[in-house]
């Protein structure tokens, strides 16, 4: 039971970082083309990405819905975060099955991390799911294809920024394997 306390702390840490700091930084990559989209990097899907391997899919879906609903409440959106997050919570297991060298059942008490997957696999896993999450979220939010260039640009800029922030988070908070 005690190992789950870590994920609870992670939940609050990631959500508070998202809500209190990131939601108040409106990023514009550059200002010169005035139409460049303003966006907020959403790093909260990281909570779902870092949950342990042994968690069954139904638990992932419930946790995804809870986390997404909390974000929806903070951002005043009608269920859009919850939808996108439940989708990647469902897809998570399939992506992991494709990337892991051994069967997923063999990883006892471990969670996806740089230690268990390695840098390249972990970044593929993160980028793929974040890309799906952001695409789905922004498509639902804009809900029109009149400005497809704007949509693409927003997804691209937002995904790249989010991946950079996630890399920083992982460098800060993952246990380093000492190589001496």
């Amino acid at each position: 039971m005690i190992q789950y306390a870590k994920y609870l702390i992670q939940f609050f840490l990631i959500l508070l970082f998202q809500v209190i700091i990131l939601n108040n930084i409106f990023l514009n990559w550059w200002v010169v083309p005035a139409g460049f989209p303003v966006f907020v990097p959403y790093i909260y899907p990281l909570f779902i990405l870092l949950l342990p391997f042994e968690l069954p899919v139904w638990a992932l879906l419930i946790l995804g819905f809870v986390c997404g609903s909390v974000m929806d409440t903070f951002m005043n959106t009608p269920g859009m975060h919850a939808f996108a997050l439940v989708l990647i919570a469902y897809l998570r297991t399939n992506v992991l099955l494709a990337l892991l060298p051994r069967n997923i059942k063999e990883y006892k008490q471990e969670s996806p991390s740089i230690k268990s997957l390695g840098w390249s696999s972990f970044m593929i896993y993160t980028t793929f799911l974040i890309l799906i999450h952001h695409s789905v979220f922004y498509i639902i939010e804009l809900w029109s294809l009149n400005n497809i260039g704007y949509l693409m640009l927003k997804i691209l800029a937002s995904v790249i920024t989010t991946i950079l922030l996630i890399a920083v988070y992982l460098l800060l908070f993952s246990q380093r394997v000492s190589q001496r």
Binding site: N23, N24, F26, P37, V38, F39, V40, M75, N76, T77, E141, L142, W143
Partner: peptide, 11 residues
């Protein structure tokens, strides 16, 4: 106390 400008409906 809170403000958003990036969403489709900003609050």
């Amino acid at each position: 106390v809170n403000n958003s400008i990036q969403a489709a409906s900003n609050f």
